[in-house]
Design a protein around this nucleic acid. Structure first.
Length: 313
DNA sequence: ATCCAGGTTCACA
DNA sequence: TGTGAACATGGA
C-alpha cells in the first residue's frame, strides 16, 4: 500500500545554537497533535523531511550545551547541495540561530509570563513543515476538532505520503505539491473525508507548485500575508499560522477559539473574551512578539499534560 | 437530536 | 465595511 522507504545513514551534522536554547521544548511541543511525522524521547528527536527529490530522516540530540548533533538518513545519493539544503532547513525550522533576548526582556515585565518563561526558557517556535505543509495543517485545523483534524491528516499522509524507516523508527513523510497535483476534489472529499476543505487542497498544491515552498524569502511579512490570502481557503488565521510558524515572524498570532480561550484565561483572567480584546491585549503586552508570547502561554498550559507524550529510548 | 469544533467564503445590506 | 448563512464531518 503506502510506499515504504528504507533510509540509509548518509551524513552527520553539527549545528551551533544560540543560547539559551531549550532542546526538548523547541523540537517537541506538548500541545502538538499526533501526525506520525515525528517522534521524541527525553534526549532525542526523530523527524522526516522532504529535501528536493529525497526523503530524509534525521535523529537530533544535543552534543554538549551549544551544538545540535544530527544523524542524517536518506533514500538516495547524498550530495553537498543536499547537506547544505537540509542544514539550512533545520536551522530555520527550529530557529537555532535566533536571539530570544528582546522577547524575554519584554515578557519578564508581564507577571503571568513568569512561569512559562522559567519552565520553557530557551524554547523557540518549531516548524519542521515547509510553507506547503504548514498550510495544509492549518487548513485541516479550520472549524474542526483536533480529533477530526488528526483523522484527515492521517488519511492524507496514508494515501499520498510515504513511510520512512531509519534508526529503528518508522515514521510518515509528507507528500509534495506535485504528488497531489493530479488528485481531484471528489477524491479528497470522499476518500480522505476532507468535507468542504476538499476544494481548497488543489489550490494549495497549484500555488506551491508555482512558488517553491522551501523558499521563505519574501519582500515583507505584510506582503506575504496578503499574498497567501489570495489562495482560496487561506484566511487571516491560516495566513498567520504560516507567517508565525513557517516564516517565523514572532509577531504573527493566529487566534482561534482554542488559543483565544487559553490567552483570555491567562492574561485577562476570563474564561473567554472577544478575539479583538485578546488581540489588543497581546499587542499592548508584547509589541512585536505577540505570536511568540502566545506560544509560551500555550505550551506552558500543556506542559503537565502533553497531547503526545515522549517515548522511551 | 442539536451543537460546535484550533475558520473561510460568498451573498447581500 | 459589516453581518449572517453555508460549508462536511463526527464526537459530545
Amino acid at each position: 500500500m503506502t510506499d515504504t522507504r528504507t533510509l540509509t545513514h548518509v551524513d552527520t551534522l553539527r549545528l551551533p545554537v544560540k543560547q539559551p536554547f531549550h532542546f526538548r521544548y523547541t523540537l517537541w511541543k506538548p500541545s502538538h497533535f499526533a501526525t506520525g511525522l515525528e517522534q521524541h524521547s527525553q534526549q532525542r528527536s526523530w523527524r522526516t523531511f522532504r529535501v528536493g527529490e529525497l526523503v530524509c530522516g534525521v535523529v537530533l540530540s544535543m552534543d554538549g550545551s551549544d551544538t545540535v548533533h544530527i544523524e542524517v538518513y536518506s533514500d538516495g545519493p547524498w550530495q553537498q547541495a543536499d547537506r547544505d539544503r537540509l542544514s539550512a532547513r533545520l536551522i530555520h525550522s527550529y530557529g537555532l540561530d535566533e536571539d530570544l533576548s528582546a522577547f524575554v526582556a519584554l515578557a519578564e515585565q508581564v507577571p503571568p509570563m513568569r512561569e512559562p518563561l522559567t519552565a520553557l526558557a530557551g524554547m523557540r517556535q518549531s516548524c519542521p513543515e515547509n510553507l506547503f505543509e504548514i498550510a495544509i495543517i492549518s487548513l485541516l485545523l479550520q472549524n474542526a476538532t483536533v480529533a477530526r483534524t488528526a483523522q484527515m491528516m492521517t488519511n492524507l499522509l496514508d494515501h499520498y505520503g510515504l513511510i520512512a524507516e531509519f534508526d529503528g523508527v518508522r515514521l510518515k513523510a509528507f507528500f509534495t505539491p506535485e504528488e497531489i497535483a493530479g488528485v481531484d476534489e471528489a477524491t479528497f472529499r470522499e476518500r480522505d473525508r476532507l468535507g468542504y476543505r476538499a476544494k481548497y487542497l488543489g489550490r494549495f498544491a497549484e500555488f506551491f507548485t508555482m512558488h517553491d515552498p522551501d523558499e521563505a524569502d519574501h519582500a515583507s511579512k505584510a506582503e506575504l500575508m496578503t499574498e497567501f490570502q489570495t489562495i482560496k481557503g487561506v484566511g487571516p488565521y491560516t495566513a498567520a499560522i504560516i507567517a508565525g510558524h513557517a516564516v517565523r515572524d514572532p509577531s504573527a498570532l493566529g487566534l482561534d477559539v482554542w488559543n483565544r480561550k487559553l490567552l483570555a484565561k491567562r492574561l485577562l483572567d476570563a474564561d473567554d473574551a472577544e478575539a479583538e480584546v485578546v488581540m489588543t491585549e497581546m499587542h499592548r503586552l508584547f509589541p512585536g512578539y505577540e505570536g511568540l508570547a502566545g506560544l509560551y502561554v500555550i505550551e506552558d498550559a500543556y506542559r503537565e499534560r502533553a497531547v503526545v507524550e515522549l517515548v522511551q529510548r
